[in-house]
Design a protein around this nucleic acid. Structure first.
Length: 887
RNA sequence: GGGAGGUUAGCUCAGCGGUAGAGCGCCUGCUUUACACGCAGGUGGUCGCAGGUUCGAUCCCUGCACCUCCCACCA
């Protein structure tokens, strides 16, 4: 080892460092440096394993919210961890055009100017959207930088980029060719405010108080007619039949009869439909409205019934609704009911609570609406996707999500993908003057069927999720056979909230398998949704945490650490301001530990190679703890337990390194120990521990750790690629751990002894340790730690001997202690001793009870029995000590 | 109507078959020369309820209660 390596650090003088720090001073600086030096790109390290993720693309309308901050922090932790472990890491950034959401934003802007989108026309409107996107569309990307996300910006993508649009079009064409995309007239979910069809997933059902109306229809030749029940009386205007169950005796009289539709006066048939009508339910008679109910539509198909559309796309009644034409659907409902009532046809009205579908975007009540739409036939796509999860090609973390996935995939319905919007990928279907449809990758010049050159493109656009499902493919240039696609597809891990399992994750798996034969990732980490104080965030509750404000107040590192610590395997992630403060304090703690360490190292030699050196028990203890911590952290990261990983580092750094080791080596470093070699070793250990802690923590707190790393090593911006501590076990040291832990327990007991007696923390205490203690195996090590014990316990005296007469006795770590105060000290707090005795007695009784039962001794594992015996001996010793206390 | 998850210290949450944990809060002391965004000591829990399995259950099983959330075309 050269002189240079021993002395090699370029620490700033510790005195130059303030007690606290301002994260804003260095966050920007490190981010630019990493980016400039290409650290976020997968280059270099050829032959190393790669680790690839694609970001769940946030909406272009988006601003960073706490949920994004959470998910992206987790991804960045993974990215940085893998990078430090030598992987070629690629994490692809991008944004989503978010059809409806974005269109709504721009429409609202126009509304302020008193303009409607139709006034502008399609082309001008789309131009406005692009304009708006250019101005503010990528705001969220800057916010991700602030968070510290190590995304490869050279591969930034947008779902409406030319290449990605080509991918969308190609996917459509292929599925159409394969017969998996079709067009048809069906009853779909329709939002009358957005004036577009939406998919089943975009409808949110909510329990709503409504009423059920019983209406009497006249039936020729049947006394009393037919009474039907409905929650939607306004749709009766479009009834084209009544339906009964063929085997229901209650309604047998109606078979083959004609009913007269009230108000409209139309004659409609009574049909028999065992699928539509539930024999057990209600009156056994159902009104059939094929244009406004999916079930009725199916029944209409079976019986060749006409479909009369009485509610238009804007939610207003059509001309078919006669006198109600032009009225809003809810107003029409009232008037229809009023008229039926006046005519004596309203037999009854009951309150009725039922589920009503609402638009996910604007909360308008969804209308089942008969219209021509494009659909994906999903079942053939779902089958291989189910198999991929069954056979482990794709796994969920936590695994429980697989069940939810299966449930949905096994009952999947066709997917309505056309949207009557302007912002999005236009459907590549062209209809000629003769009504033939041509679907093609390139705009056709002539109809494929008849050669006509008079073609019109379908005005609709595709569901946003149709393009999102291709994201892991399209970002790499698919359908082109690009080098990136070959290098980086399939990706490794997908991290996202469970709320888009069906919308996005399932569909990506289906699309990936369909188009490449390979699932787009091998692991899906589905995380919970962020709540504040157990409640959903909402402005009205005033509990919204804006991540940017939090970053400003606490620093990006503290925000990230808080989010990582809050991660749990459950469905909610609870974040509170108090935890932000705690993380900020933790950052400051590290800062100060570094300040201390750098001060100690300055101008002094600190060995880098610790093997072969003579190390003290505290040295060995902390190195053993560092090793164990590293191993724990890696294990927890493998299992997506970011909370546990963060907690392990926190505990090590604060409670073991700072509270423990630092306090133990202060006298050594101050030269109170005559052994200069011991001080040098301690500096080496200190340095090793700080390096280790910085490395372990870097994925969680990248900025601060990089800042300190520079001061410690003189190599700015290199922690991001420093090796991640693995925890090999080579520093594992059971002897040092048990000795130092016993030492700490004894010191704590001495301090408690003082506080029990209400004397000053500096009052001198005489301590004796009985050589005949049950834990005497620790004695040789403890004797070596005598000086430290005296120092930390502020002992006036330490003897390895039985307790002096009159001294207080207790047993700690199996060691019988005697504790004495100088004359004049207050007597023991009797109440406290009594309380402890009670607890000891209770536990003794419990263990004796256990050991007294033959069944326990016979059936419990020997180790458990032995452990109980030992515990009993200790407790008995302790009881004797406490009972014998006389001071 | 199905399904999933939750119910552990004042608060937010870990733990999930062998002596109940963390952070924050609270109480008591500390100008111990890295840190009061700190140090030290302490307080605080019949682990939702009732059964069962087990030598032993907060942890496994069954039922119940309450809370979330998904899925579902019962008029």
């Amino acid at each position: 080892m050269s002189e240079r390596t021993v002395m090699d650090f370029a620490a700033d003088p510790a005195k130059a460092l303030e007690k606290t720090f301002d994260p804003a001073h260095f966050e920007e600086r490190w981010y630019s440096l990493w980016e400039k030096e290409g650290r976020f790109q997968p280059g270099g390290l050829t032959g190393s394993p790669r680790f690839v993720m694609v970001i769940p693309p946030p909406n272009v309308t988006g601003r960073l919210h706490i949920g994004h901050a959470y998910g992206r922090t987790i991804e960045d932790i993974l990215a940085r961890w893998k990078r430090m472990r030598g992987h070629r890491v690629l994490w692809v950034p991008g944004t989503d055009h978010a059809g409806i959401a974005t269109q709504m934003v721009v429409e609202r802007q126009l509304a302020k100017e008193g303009i409607q989108r139709r006034d502008l026309g399609r082309e001008k409107f789309i131009e406005r959207v692009w304009e708006w996107r250019r101005e503010s569309g990528d705001m969220i990307l800057g916010q991700l930088r602030r968070l510290g996300c190590s995304l490869d910006w050279s591969r930034l993508r947008f779902t409406m980029d030319e290449n990605l649009s080509r991918a969308v079009r190609h996917a459509f064409v292929r599925l159409h060719q394969d017969g998996l995309i079709y067009r048809g007239r069906y009853v779909v979910n329709w939002c009358p405010r957005c004036e577009t069809a939406v998919s089943d997933l975009e409808v949110v059902h909510r329990e709503t108080e409504g009423a059920i109306f019983k209406i009497r229809y006249d039936v020729s030749g049947v006394e009393g007619g037919a009474v039907v029940a409905t929650t939607r009386p306004e749709t009766m205007l479009g009834d084209t039949a009544l339906a009964i169950h063929p085997e229901d005796p209650r309604t047998a009289a109606l078979k083959g009869k004609k009913a007269i539709l009230p108000i409209m006066g139309r004659e409609i048939p009574v049909i028999e439909d065992a699928i539509l009508v539930d024999r057990e339910f209600g009156t056994g008679i159902v009104k059939v409205t094929p244009a406004h109910d999916a079930n009725d539509f199916a029944s209409g198909q079976r019986h060749g019934l006409p479909a009369v559309v009485v509610i238009g796309p804007n939610g207003k009644m059509t001309a078919e609704a006669g006198e109600y034409a032009g009225l809003d659907r809810f107003e029409a409902r009232k008037r229809v009911v009023a008229r039926l009532d006046a005519e004596g046809r309203l037999v009854g009205t009951e309150k009725h609570s039922h589920n009503v579908g609402h638009c996910q975007r604007c909360d308008t009540v969804i209308e089942p609406y008969l219209s021509a739409q494009w659909f994906v036939k999903v079942q053939p796509l779902a089958e291989p996707a189910i198999r991929a999860v069954e056979d482990g090609t794709v796994r969920f973390a936590p695994e429980a999500w697989a069940k939810t996935y299966f449930e949905w995939m096994r009952n999947i319905h066709d997917w309505c993908i056309s949207r009557q919007l302007w912002w999005g990928h236009r459907i590549p279907a062209f209809t000629c003057e003769n009504g033939h449809v041509t679907v093609a990758d390139e705009d056709p010049f002539a109809c494929q069927t008849c050669g006509s050159s008079k073609l019109e493109q379908d005005p609709d656009v595709l569901d946003t999720w149709f393009s999102s499902q291709l994201w892991p493919l399209s970002v790499f240039g698919w359908p082109g056979q690009t080098p990136d696609l070959a290098d980086f597809y399939p990706t490794d891990v997908l991290v996202t909230g469970y709320d888009i399992l069906f919308f996005w994750v399932a569909r990506m798996i289906m699309a990936g398998l369909r188009f490449t034969g390979k699932a787009p990732f091998h692991t899906v980490h589905l995380h919970g949704l962020v709540r504040v104080g157990g409640e959903k965030m909402s402005k009205s509750k005033g509990n919204v945490i804006d991540p940017l404000e939090a970053i400003q107040e606490f620093g990006a590192d503290a925000v990230r650490f808080t989010l990582a610590s809050a991660a749990s395997s459950g469905p909610t992630v609870s974040v509170e301001r108090g935890r932000m403060t705690g993380s900020r304090n933790f950052a400051t703690k590290l800062w100060n530990a570094a300040r201390f360490t750098l001060g100690q190292l300055e101008g002094k030699s600190a060995p880098k190679d610790l093997r072969g050196r003579s190390l003290s028990l505290p040295d060995r203890w902390i190195l053993s703890r560092l090793d164990a911590t590293a191993s724990d952290v890696n294990r927890h990261l493998e299992g997506f337990r970011f909370d546990e990983a963060a907690g392990a580092i926190y505990g090590f750094l604060w409670h073991e390194l700072c509270d423990g080791y630092l306090e133990m080596v202060k006298p050594v470093l101050a030269g109170q120990d005559a052994d200069a070699g011991a001080a040098e070793s301690a500096r080496g250990v200190l340095r090793r521990c700080l390096e280790g802690a910085l490395s372990l923590l870097h994925p969680f707190m990248p900025f601060l750790t990089e800042e300190i790393w520079e001061k410690l090593t003189g190599r700015p911006g290199t922690l991001i690629v420093a090796p991640y501590p693995e925890g090999t076990g080579q520093w594992k040291d059971a002897e040092a751990e048990s000795a130092v832990e016993a030492l700490r327990a004894i010191v704590t007991r001495v301090r408690t002894f003082r506080s029990e007696r209400g004397v000053s923390p500096t009052a001198p205490v005489a301590l004796s340790i009985d050589r005949e203690s049950p834990g005497k195996a620790l004695l040789p090590a403890l004797e070596r730690l005598s000086l430290l014990l005296v120092h930390l316990g502020r002992l006036s005296e330490l003897a390895f001997a039985p307790a002096a007469p009159g001294h207080f006795q207790d047993v700690v770590a199996g060691l019988a202690l005697g504790l004495g105060l100088p004359q004049g000290a207050p007597p023991a707090a009797g109440a406290r001793i009594a309380k402890e005795l009670t607890a000891v007695n209770a536990e003794i009784a419990e263990i004796e009870g256990k050991l007294g039962k033959p069944s326990f001794v016979e059936k419990a594992p020997a180790a458990v029995v032995e452990k109980n015996r030992q515990r009993l001996r200790e407790l008995q010793e302790k009881r004797a000590a406490l009972g014998g206390a006389s001071s």
